[in-house]
Amino acid sequence: MSDSWIAVCSRDEIDEEDVMRFDHEGRTFAIYRSPDDAFFATDGLCTHEKIHLADGLVMDEVIECPKHNGRFNYKTGKALGAPVCVNLQTYPVKLDGDTVYIAIG
């Protein structure tokens, strides 16, 4: 797994309780910084209609999709109710120095 760590950004590029889009080799991801300053990553597109979650709103451990307000727990990927019914894929994230890395696998 450690071979596949990919540098995303420096920690300060994402505000606390916010999300950033990250595109890599034709795939798109959402990278989150929680209110308690931890980093998380999920697939970048909503499982409902493939909208970029990075345009949505982070509230505590929830990301709300900007299109129909579907909600996911971005730490677990769990879909929290209609109109999102399919969970999000999550990815390991680590912080090395000031750099955020994601393991895409």
Partner: peptide, 13 residues
Amino acid sequence: PITWRWSHTRHHT
């Protein structure tokens, strides 16, 4: 509340 949540979702799409 179920049917109309979904119909409104479609209205926004």
